[in-house]
Design a protein around this nucleic acid. Sequence first.
DNA 1: ATCGTTACCGGGAACGATTGCGTAAAAAAA
DNA 2: TTTTTTTACGCAATCGTTCCCGGTAACGAT
Lengths: 368, 368
Amino acid sequence: MAPGSQELVNLPSACNMKFEALTIKDIAKALGLSTSTVSRALRDSYEISPETKKLVLDYAALNNYQPNPIALSLKERRSRSIGVIVCEIANSFFSQTINGIENIAYNNGYNVIIAQSRESFDRELLNLQYLTSRSIDGLIISVSTETKDFSYLKELNQRGMPIVFFDRIVDEIDTHKVIVDNYKGVYDATVHLIKNGYRNIAALANSGQLSITRERLAGYKAALADNGLEVQDDMIRYCEHGGMILSEVENAVNGLFGKGNKGPDAIIALADKLTTGCLRILKEKGRKVPEETALIGFSNTDLTELLDPPLTIIKQPAFEMGEVATSQLLQLIESKRPITRFETRVLESELLIRKSSASKPRKAKPVS
Amino acid sequence: MAPGSQELVNLPSACNMKFEALTIKDIAKALGLSTSTVSRALRDSYEISPETKKLVLDYAALNNYQPNPIALSLKERRSRSIGVIVCEIANSFFSQTINGIENIAYNNGYNVIIAQSRESFDRELLNLQYLTSRSIDGLIISVSTETKDFSYLKELNQRGMPIVFFDRIVDEIDTHKVIVDNYKGVYDATVHLIKNGYRNIAALANSGQLSITRERLAGYKAALADNGLEVQDDMIRYCEHGGMILSEVENAVNGLFGKGNKGPDAIIALADKLTTGCLRILKEKGRKVPEETALIGFSNTDLTELLDPPLTIIKQPAFEMGEVATSQLLQLIESKRPITRFETRVLESELLIRKSSASKPRKAKPVS
DNA sequence: ATCGTTACCGGGAACGATTGCGTAAAAAAA
DNA sequence: TTTTTTTACGCAATCGTTCCCGGTAACGAT
C-alpha cells in the first residue's frame, strides 16, 4: 500500500479532552515518512520529490496543520513577539499608538505584549523584567513620568535587546526614536494664545526630566520670549505623577491661582491627562473657560470637541507614530548585521482650534 | 577541587552581540553538575542535598538565571499566555476591562495578547486564528457586533480551548461568562427618564443579534410597558457596525427625527460608542440637550462629566469584569479535571445622573 | 560479609521543529 | 557493465527544560 493511500482521518479526534494540535510527527507517522522529509516538504525544499511534496502538503492542508510556534521559537531563539510599555492604555494617545503598533506587527507575524507602567517607575521595571523573561525580540517604550534612572534600559540595550522609544524618549540611549515636533507644536499653540490676547500664560507639565516636558517647555518659553513676554517660573507647574492622581493636578492649578497673583488668563497643558484634568479642576473652581481662563493642551481624544467648552488641542499622529516605531523595531530585529546609525523620526503635530482658546474679550487697553 | 570553588564569573559576557540568556546547562557546566541536578535544585527537590542546592541557587541568583519560558512552554504544552479579543482598545470600557484582565493575569504569571476586531467579523476570525496559532492557553472575548456565526468559536471550545465571554456573550456556547445586569441597568435608566417627564423615548442599539442589545432592549421595553407607554418599533434604531462609522449613527438618529413624527424627546443609547456618537450628531443637528432631546447612555469614559451637557450614563464595572473573567478563565485552564458546571456572573451597573437627562421643563399637561 | 534502605545524583528521552550529513536507489555517463 | 552523478530520503543533533529511570555510595541490620 502506498503511503498516501492510508486513511487521512486519524488526526487527533475532536473529542479529545484537551486540544492537541497536529504535529509534524503525526504527519510523518500517518504518511510513513520521516519528520525531516515532512518538514522539508512543508518548506518546499528542492530535496523532496514533487509527489511526496504534494502528499504532505495535501495532508497538512486537509488536517489543518499549523506549525507549533513555541517549538519554532525554541529552535530559532526568537519569540516573534515584541513588548510594549506605556503608562496606560486607557489613554487615547497610547491606545491609538498601540493600534498602529499592532497593525505593523501583526502584518509581519509578530504578536504584541502590552504592559502598563501607570506612571510608576517600579511597575515599569517590573514590566521590563517580566517582558524580558518572556523573551521578547524587541521593545517599544514610552517611559513613565517617574523614571529618572535609565540604567536598566541601557544595560538591556547593550546586551543586544532592540529598543525603540516613542513620545517620551531617552536621549542618552542611542537607538531609533519617534516623536512629534514638540517644540514647534507648543510654540505654535502658545503663539496662538498670545495672538488671541492672552498675556499671562501658565504651563502645566509632567515631571521635568521627561523629554517631552523639556521640549514642550522650550517651545513655550521661546514663544513667550519671541513675543516680548516674560517667562515666570511660578507660571510653570509640574506634575510628578503625570496627572494620574487628580489631587496633584489640583494642587498645581491651585498654585497658579495662589495668593497675591491674579492668576493666569490662559493655561497650556503639556500632556493628555493634564489637559482634561485641568479642565476638570477649572470647572470645579468655577472658573469660566475661556472667559476667565483659556485652556489649550495636548490630547488625542475625539471627545474634546464635545466638551464644555470644546477644547483647543494639540493632537499627535498617534497611529502613525506606532506604525513608524514598529517598522523601526522590526528593522532592528531582522537586520543581519548590527545597526549603528540610528534615526529619530520627527512627525508633525496638529493644532485644532476650538472655543477654549477663543479671543480674549478685550475690556482693557491693548497690550503694552 | 570542590565544584563550588570554581570561578563564578564565566557567564555569557556582556559584550555578546545578541543577548544570550544563562541556561541550566551553563550552570551545570560551571558547577560540574548535571542538568537534572541543577533543574531539581532550582525546583527545590528533596533529592538534592542542601549544599548542592545552595551552590546552585547562589550561582543562579548571582548570575540572574531566568528559566526559559519558551522551553518550558514546549515541555509543558502550555504557553502561559491568554488571548483577548475586543472590538477596540481605544474604547474606555474595553481598556478598563483589559486593565482588570492584565491585573489578574500578570499576578498569575500569564501574559496577555490583545487583538482588536474593530467590529468586523472577518477581523475577529483572523484574530482568532492568529491567537490559536500562537497557542494561547485560553481566550477572553467580547464578540463583534457583526458576528452572527459562532461555529468557529464553538468548535474551538469543543476542541478543548477554554473560553470566557464578557459583555457581549454567546448564549449557545456553554462556558463561564461575565456581564452586567443589562436589563436592570436599562430598565432603571428608562424609568429615570420617564420620571423626569419624558414620554417619547427612543433607543439606539447595536445590531440585534448581540446579547447586550437583546437584554438592554428588553429592559427598555419593559420600563415603557410598566409605565403605560407604548413601545414603538420606529423608535428603536440599530447600528450594525456598532457606531464605528459615524454616518451610521447619523442615519439612525436622522431616522428618529424623520418626516411626520415630532421625534423623540429622549434617547437612550445602548453602547459606549453610540452614546458619544449620538451626542455628536445631536449637536451637529443643533438640537439642545436635554431641552429638546434628553440623552442617556452606556459609557465608561470619565470625560462624560465634562461634556456639554454633562452626560447621564450607565457605567459598567469594567475593571472588575476583566478581573472576574480572568479568574474564571484561569480556573478553566488550571483545573485538573474537566469543568462541566459553568457560571454566568452578573454584576451591577451604575447610573450616574447628570444634566443630559434633567427634568423636562413641563409646558404641557401632565401625562395621560 | 551480605542485604536492604536511604540519600543523591546522572543519563537520556521527551516536547516540535529544523538542518547538516550520510546514504540508499535511480539515472546518467563512462 | 561499471562508474559517477543525481535524486530523495532518513538519522541524529539541536534549542532549554523536565522527569522517568537508573545507579552508586554510605550506613545500619542481619
